[in-house]
Design a binder for these strands. Structure first.
Ligand SMILES: [Mn+2]
Ligand SMILES: [Mn+2]
Ligand SMILES: [Zn+2]
Ligand SMILES: [Zn+2]
Lengths: 121, 121
DNA sequence: TATGGAAATGATAATCATTTTCATTTGTGA
DNA sequence: TCACAAATGAAAATGATTATCATTTCCATA
């Protein structure tokens, strides 16, 4: 947890939703911080490893990051404005476990995200 | 549905699991087909639009494609060998709908995939 | 069958996010 | 202060995907 990591956490706190590495870099630059793009990627990687931020992918495959609450959860993301709600997996946690067992899979993980338009969009 | 689309469907039938555009291109080349990479991308794009193949993303963001069964379903994918089982969403379908309603989201879609190691791996 | 335009094709170049390299700077404990 | 490790960022490399554009293949109609 170094200086750059903290900068990224700070930006992510302010932006709220998901943002790409390039976008986060631009925001920091606009604010007068001369941080390099390389360092932004490094910091994000490190934060993902430490499970402090979540990584998922835009439709075009670009990685997007978001400061995350603790523990396992899922997301409800607005395709219009990017607003994101963290939600519990509820019934799908068992679904994933059951399906995996049924087909003899071990060491399973799962992803589940919901996309739509929020009430404002 | 043109000649190239059919070639891609044929390769996807033979490979079974998910494969990237680059991999599918290599397979066709190895079989003596001189099809261009551009055409492979175009055919895959068209098949995805027509919902004949499914597109998802590797961890590194690379797009992978698979010939799909009809209708809405999810996947159980082996991280070792790529073997893929198509499974029903079951509890997820209601979960997605309920969560979306609760937060006032419209026009919702969802993704849910399970990853693990199959019994052979 | 000939023909003119539309659709398909593929080589090549352009994009663009991400990763590598590597020289320089900064931080830190002895 | 000194030595050494960690952090930083400019620049180049990588690699998937997309855009161009000239050429070829189809196909309907005369
Ligand atoms: Mn989250
Ligand atoms: Mn499928
Ligand atoms: Zn919105
Ligand atoms: Zn396997």
């Amino acid at each position: 947890m170094n200086k750059s990591d903290l900068k990224l956490i700070s930006v992510l706190e302010r932006t709220g939703g998901f943002a790409s590495a390039q976008e986060l870099h631009q925001i920091l630059r606009r604010e007068g911080d001369g941080i390099g793009l390389t360092t932004v990627y490094r910091a994000l990687q490190s934060l993902v490893d430490d499970k402090i931020v979540d990584l998922l992918r835009r439709d075009d495959g670009e990685a997007i990051y978001r400061l995350c609450g603790d523990g396992h959860h899922h997301h409800l993301v607005c395709k219009g404005c990017g607003q994101t709600v963290e939600i519990e997996g509820g019934a799908i946690e068992n679904w994933a476990k059951t399906m995996a067992e049924e087909f003899g899979f071990r060491e399973v993980a799962h992803t589940a995200e919901i996309f739509g338009l929020c009430s404002k969009c």
